[in-house]
């Protein structure tokens, strides 16, 4: 590991510890929901990082189709994998939060439904990669599907803003009068949320970089093996 990578990793670990401490020790207890509301900081941060990962996957996909450079495909692939892990965490933390607040682990609310659709779309993306043998075709198809898949991301974002939903909108106004679990952010809550968002974004970047390097190493190894076979 190079020096700048060690600094990057160290800063991420430090910020993650700081953000976690802030969630439990600095952020105030929410009046109506109590301590369970603290899961909000993990929920929103993982959701944000997950969707950021899919945006990176989209950029990688477009860049691959323009340049046909394997690096962009590797980046896009890494972003989808990391994004899926983060979005899974967002869904699980959301479900844990829903149980005491909505009295159910799951409901087919527009926001939950569209988030699940996005999750399944990117899972299908991995299955597609797995079903194609030729590396070039795999990269091309994966890039195309990553572009099509991203169409579901704005739908997920807009679903809680345009449709009747019980999912709260913490940032910005909600059109739904049925939102349950809505709460106002105090300054300390905002500080904790911003710190969490930064820490999780950094964690995402580290995970992305590591997965990208593993993918590169794997493909380089395959190239060496193929060259050795030919020789």
């Amino acid at each position: 590991m190079r020096a700048w990578e060690r600094i990057w990793l160290g800063a991420t670990i430090a910020l993650m510890i700081l953000a976690t401490l802030a969630v439990f020790l600095y952020a105030p207890r929410e009046a109506k929901m109590g301590d369970v509301q603290r899961i909000f900081y993990f929920h929103i941060s993982t959701a944000w990082s997950g969707f950021l990962a899919f945006a990176v996957a989209l950029i990688g996909a477009i860049a691959y189709l323009r340049t046909r450079s394997a690096r962009w495909d590797q980046l896009s692939h890494a972003a989808v994998e990391v994004g899926l892990v983060l979005l899974t965490m967002a869904i699980v933390t959301g479900s844990l939060w829903a149980r005491p607040v909505w009295n159910t682990w799951w409901t087919w609310d527009p926001r939950l439904t569209t988030t699940t659709i996005t999750w399944v779309v990117y899972l299908a993306h991995l299955l597609l990669r797995n079903a194609v043998e030729n590396p070039e075709t795999r990269a091309r198809f994966a890039a195309v599907y990553a572009i099509v898949a991203f169409v579901t991301v704005p739908i997920t974002y807009l679903s809680a803003r345009l449709l009747r939903t019980i999912h709260p909108i913490v940032l910005g106004p909600s059109v739904s009068s049925e939102a349950q679990g809505q709460f106002g952010l105090t300054p300390r809550m905002v500080h904790t949320m911003v710190l969490s968002l930064i820490a999780w974004t950094l964690l995402f970047s580290v995970l992305l970089w590591m997965r990208y390097r593993v993918q590169r190493a794997q493909e380089t190894l395959e190239g060496i093996e193929a060259a050795a076979e030919e020789a």
Binding site: A124, F141, T152
Partner: peptide, 29 residues
């Protein structure tokens, strides 16, 4: 969207099996 995804799915190993997996989530909304 099915025309596009079928053109991809039919060129893969899983073919007909893969098409609904690719199509259903994208078409769900």
């Amino acid at each position: 969207v099915t025309t596009l995804l079928a053109a991809m799915a039919m060129a893969t190993r899983a073919r007909e099996l893969l098409l609904p997996i690719l199509l259903f989530p994208v078409a769900a909304p």
